[in-house]
Write a protein that binds this DNA or RNA. Sequence first.
DNA 1: TGACTTATTGAATGCCTGTTCAGCGAATTT
DNA 2: AAATTCGCTGAACAGGCATTCAATAAGTCA
Lengths: 236, 236
Amino acid sequence: MTQQTAKTRPDDSGPTPGRSAAKVARRLQLIDATIRCIAKHGLSGTTIAKVSDLAGTSVGLANFHFDSKERLFEATLLHLAHEQRGIWQARAADPSLTPAERLLAIVESRFDSRICQRRKLAIWFAFWGDAGARVIYRRVVADLDDERLDATVAILTSLGAGAGQAMADPRSAILGMEAFYDGLWLNMLLYPDDFKRLACRDRAIGHLAALFPAVFSGGAADPLPTPLLDQEADDA
Amino acid sequence: MTQQTAKTRPDDSGPTPGRSAAKVARRLQLIDATIRCIAKHGLSGTTIAKVSDLAGTSVGLANFHFDSKERLFEATLLHLAHEQRGIWQARAADPSLTPAERLLAIVESRFDSRICQRRKLAIWFAFWGDAGARVIYRRVVADLDDERLDATVAILTSLGAGAGQAMADPRSAILGMEAFYDGLWLNMLLYPDDFKRLACRDRAIGHLAALFPAVFSGGAADPLPTPLLDQEADDA
DNA sequence: TGACTTATTGAATGCCTGTTCAGCGAATTT
DNA sequence: AAATTCGCTGAACAGGCATTCAATAAGTCA
């Protein structure tokens, strides 16, 4: 109602290439400020004034671009969700991958350096932890979560009998796997000294290999191969 | 400074038995209202006015008993943390338990029906998810968390060589276990239909048995024995 | 250039917040 | 019985909040 100009350009590319590009950049600038603000001050401490200050804009601009604070949060969540989707789909897209390798690729993408940044992890748990924000999360991200879940179930199903007794209920097995990754995420956020990204990735892979010994690392696998700390220079 | 009356009674039992008992009951009433309020409205949506309304008291009473909103939150957190400590310590106290059984008891206590209530899980993730609330959490609960961690490490160490290669770094192994339980908690909160309490408890036990096949279920264990849903009537 | 649309500003508005405090009834003490 | 403390109330207060909007700048088009 406020955005669309019915006369000049009815198509979705915006009024003008230059304008719409600048508009997207502005929105991204505000979304980035929102991410940093939530990470630093928490959801309850995130105000339009602080976000605007971090973005270096006036207080009115956020409402101009997103209509309301809640819509700004929706856009922020959607931005991160799409970033994640792009990453796991790119990793799993390679047609030369076997089903097992594709499953591994999706699991590893949850520990990609672009995703496992404290700043971004803070956003997910901010929304998961707040009763009011959870309904926003479901409205915005539920479909994308289901998409990844379905893709993973499909791969697991294609693994067939080689997957062992976890195949009795593939969906349930995958839900359990994802729960483990969620727990690793949480502990990366809470205790970054004890939970480094690469060590968590290895833990996740070890867990996967323990679930499907016949598929990964050829035969009886160790439940937790090398649960040690890594010292790679990660994000701040 | 505001509570202690230096003249009438210097001991810690309070001014009078009747009075102090009523006082404790009032504080508990406010803490319970706080729990329900955070669970329903989130941390950001929890106000003194709403808490007071849920407790059926005036707005001034919360500040009278807890001095500030932040201290009320601290008291709420401390209440839940002590409840948890009481439960796992009671379960693990039985001197007739073997080390392995005691380890199992501590793990199972995380899925006790008194602990795994949506209302209470919501509190933990509310504090974990908010950057501002995390510093409160650390200040209040860190010691109690460490206490359980240390107790678990001690048991694992006493298991000795029977624990397999997870013994290479007991602390790391236990941190990984706890991360999994955290993830199950999160999914119990987010998706209660897919993650029932007893099923999660069984998942946790299965994971434990996979980590220490020589100790639990005598010999090579299944990574995930029966990851199915249960249909016990739990809390609301 | 001039007409027009879009982007941005920041002061103003009204609501909601946590906290304070004077007052009061009841319990307790002297 | 009188004095005093304690528990509790709710109106009052000051500060912070999201949102609005008139004014203005910048960009686009005819």
